[in-house]
Simulated scan of single mutants.
Amino acid sequence: MPTLVCFGDSNTADSYDANGTPRLTPRIADSLNGWKVINAGISGETTRDALARIKKDVADYYPSLVTVLFGSNDSARNRDVSLEEYEKNLRLIVEQLSPEKTILISPPPVVEAAQINNRDNATLAKYAQIVQKVARETGSHFIDLFTEMKDLPDYSELLVEDGLHISEQGYVFLSHIITAKIKSIQEVN
C-alpha cells in the first residue's frame, strides 16, 4: 500500500478540528483510494524543528510521497528563521526524503489586517519563491499554494478569522490540489 506523509506546521497538524470537521489528511485519504495517509504536522513548527524530527515522524514510515508545508512560522517576525536558513533547511529535508518523493508546498498568504506585526505577504512571497527555487533545483515536486490562493477573487475565505490558519473551505481547496498533484505524479510513474 502506498503511503503519503503530510509533514508540516499547524496548517497540516490535527486530522480533525474541535468540532470533528475533517482537516487536511482525512480529505486526502478520502480522495486517494488505497493509500495510507499519515499526519505529521505539529503546530508552531519551523523547518528548523522539522529537521529534528524528520526521521522518526516521516522517514521511518518509508513513505511513497511526502508533502512538506512549512514557512508560515519560519517567516514570522518573532521566529528568526532567515530566508537563507529556510532554503538550507528545505534542501536538507529534500535530501533526507529524496526529490522524487518530495512535494514541496509554498506557505499560504495571510490576511495582513489580522496578522499585523506577525507576518506580511511581501515576506511570505519571498519564502514561497525559495520553495519554488529549491523544488526546481533539486527536482522535487512543487505546489505553489501562495500563488494559487492569491489568484482567487477572495482568498480570505480559505482562512479562519486569525488570517493565518486554513479554514474548512481552505482544506477542501488544498486537498484537491494535493490529490491532483499526486495523481499526476502517478500517471508519470
Rank of each mutant, 00 (worst) to 15 (best):
M1N: 12
V5L: 09
D14N: 15
Y16G: 11
P22L: 11
R23P: 00
I28N: 02
L32E: 09
I38W: 12
S43M: 09
G44D: 06
T46N: 09
T47K: 03
R48Q: 12
L51H: 04
A52I: 12
A52V: 11
I54L: 12
A59K: 14
Y61R: 05
S64C: 10
L65R: 06
T67S: 11
T67C: 07
F70A: 02
S72I: 12
N73E: 05
N73L: 08
S75V: 03
N78M: 10
R79C: 09
D80T: 04
D80V: 03
E84P: 00
E85Y: 11
Y86T: 04
K88N: 10
V94F: 04
Q96D: 14
T102H: 06
T102G: 05
L104G: 02
P109A: 02
P109H: 02
V110E: 03
A113T: 12
A114F: 08
N118K: 13
D120M: 05
N121F: 03
K126N: 12
I130H: 09
Q132Y: 04
G139L: 09
H141Q: 10
I143L: 14
M149N: 03
L152R: 13
Y155F: 15
S156F: 00
E157N: 13
L164C: 06
H165R: 08
E168D: 15
Q169A: 14
L174K: 04
H176C: 09
A180C: 08
A180V: 00
K181D: 02
K181N: 02
I182F: 08
S184Y: 02
Q186N: 13
N189S: 13
